[in-house]
Design a protein around this nucleic acid. Structure first.
Length: 342
DNA sequence: CGTACCACCACTATCGTGTA
DNA sequence: TACACGATAGTGGTGGTACG
């Protein structure tokens, strides 16, 4: 049984050839990506999908994926558009709900993970800022917040991801470095605070330079594609990645993360067990062996004579306590190491 | 089917002008 | 002098249509 799921986002820059069967159509690359990278949920921007195209895709790829989309109101096949693709072979579709918050720009999907946990993913494609004018970009964040405030019974997103078309800190997220308009940064900040969300990649790599968008013409790079999550999700999230997508002519990279549902085994009320990555850890194994030998020696020295302070049960128990303590210590040491390795 | 065309889209850089 | 702002240019793509 799988407790974790790969979530990814990509700006796909159009549909490709208008025929799904044509070799230059992009959707077969999307499918290949879902399979190769074992992506359960994929967020797409600049999809240029109208309802007819969505229907066509859902028919053609019915056995493997389901697409939920929101189209630009004025030019659905020509600009913008967000979509959420569910890999049917990895994620159950029962109980899925969608909320179109801003047409062609913001679409929320609620999915039911195993054990009934719900995950609410808000997919966004923000307007780009032009020069110093961040007003359109800022407006999207305000529109989303107003929508949420006016619908207190709608789900709160615990994942916010997509193409933000701006960065929070120009010094580290752009090359050459430059800040984006304050209006946009502030509006996103407000929404972040309202939803208690954090930039997962930046939290994991506080000073690292990493970019998701390269403009060939100018050589400038930026990290305008991001994934924000709640603390609860951040705790167990792994594998924050920026990778090439394999989709032709998509000039953004694929961003992804592996998340675990909030009540998943590691943090559940259920019995704690030694994580797999600790069981395989050399430091832990050596310690377990050493302590085992010590315990065995103590047992032999007992020579079948028991007393309240010294008996086989007690020796066994202290042995177990020592191993568990070591496992917890190693787990704490290993996890940041794993993250750093990525 | 491929190609040629045209308007449009996305994103960044740069340059001139006004203001502190 | 420094910066904010607005307009514009530049690059390379897209989608739709027409044409062969």
């Amino acid at each position: 049984m799988k407790a974790h799921i790969n979530v990814a986002a990509l700006n796909m820059r159009g549909f490709g050839n208008p025929s799904l069967f044509h070799r230059d159509n992009k959707w077969k690359y999307i499918l290949a990506m879902l399979r190769d990278k074992r992506i359960g949920i994929l967020i797409l921007e600049e999809t240029h999908l109208n309802p007819e195209r969505i229907e066509e895709i859902n028919k053609h790829y019915e056995r493997v994926m389901k697409v939920f989309g929101s189209s630009d109101p004025t030019n659905p096949t020509g600009r913008g558009g967000v979509a959420v693709v569910v890999n049917k072979q990895l994620v159950a579709l029962e109980g899925v709900k969608t909320f179109e918050i801003v047409q062609g720009r913001a679409l929320m999907v609620q999915l039911v993970m195993h054990k009934g946990d719900k995950i609410n993913i808000l997919a966004v494609y923000a307007p780009n800022v032009s020069g110093n004018d961040g007003s359109a970009n800022a407006q999207l964040w305000r529109d989303i917040q107003h929508w949420l405030e006016s619908k207190p019974h709608a789900p709160r997103p615990n994942v916010l991801m997509g193409d933000f078309n701006m960065v929070e800190s120009g010094a580290v997220d752009r090359l050459p470095a430059h800040d984006d308009p304050e209006e946009a940064v502030d509006a996103l900040d407000d929404l972040k605070m309202y939803l208690q969300l954090k930039d997962g990649w930046r939290t994991t790599f506080p000073d690292k330079k990493g970019f998701t968008f390269l403009q060939d013409a100018t050589g400038s790079q930026s990290r305008i594609d991001r994934i924000y999550v709640t603390d609860g999700i951040l705790e167990t999230a792994r594998e924050w990645n920026i990778r090439t997508s394999g989709v032709p002519n998509a000039d953004h990279d694929l961003i992804s993360v592996q998340i675990t549902s909030e009540n998943a085994p590691f943090t559940a009320k259920g019995r704690w067990r030694i994580p797999e990555y600790v069981v395989k850890d050399r430091g832990f194994l050596d310690h377990a062996r050493e302590q085992g030998i010590i315990a065995k020696k103590e047992l032999e020295e007992l020579n079948m004579e028991r007393s309240p302070g010294k008996n086989p049960q007690q020796i066994w128990n202290t042995y177990k306590q020592k191993i568990i303590q070591k496992a917890r210590d190693r787990a704490r040491e290993i996890v940041p190491g794993l993250v750093r390795k990525i």
